[in-house]
Simulated assay, not measured.
Amino acid sequence: MAASLQDMFLVTVICESVLQDRMVKLLKNSGASGYTIIQAVGSGRHGSRMGDIAGFNTNIEIKILTSEEICDRLIEEIKPFREKYALIAFRQPVEGLL
């Protein structure tokens, strides 16, 4: 018997690793039920982030599957961090098994 897919949003945040604890607190307070964090390297508008020195010049990628309501709340709560830190965030509508 095939399980049904649920409509949800995938929020992806790529930010400086120094924000990890603040992002986790924000996610928990927003009502997100879970998240995944991985180390990220790359280059873009904010320069290169190669993670070659532990704790310096490093990025993380945070992925959250959630409802549209929580997605909207997260995006709004993340916006102020862009003023001081390298951070991008985007969302995608997805279907998934939970």
Rank of each mutant, 00 (worst) to 15 (best):
A2W: 02
A2P: 09
Q6A: 14
M8F: 10
M8A: 13
F9W: 14
L10N: 14
T12H: 00
V13K: 00
I14M: 05
I14W: 05
E16D: 02
S17G: 01
S17C: 06
V18N: 06
Q20H: 06
L27P: 00
K28E: 00
Y35M: 02
I37F: 02
I38M: 12
I38Y: 06
I38D: 08
A40G: 10
A40F: 04
V41K: 08
V41G: 04
G44T: 03
G44C: 02
R45L: 06
S48M: 11
M50I: 15
G51L: 11
G51C: 07
A54R: 12
G55T: 02
F56Q: 13
T58A: 12
T58Q: 06
N59C: 03
I60Y: 05
E61R: 13
E61P: 01
I62V: 15
K63N: 15
L65M: 14
S67Y: 07
E69A: 11
D72R: 12
L74A: 04
E77R: 15
F81L: 10
F81S: 08
F81H: 07
R82A: 13
I88V: 15
I88Q: 08
I88H: 04
A89L: 01
F90W: 12
R91W: 12
V94M: 07
E95N: 14
L98F: 15
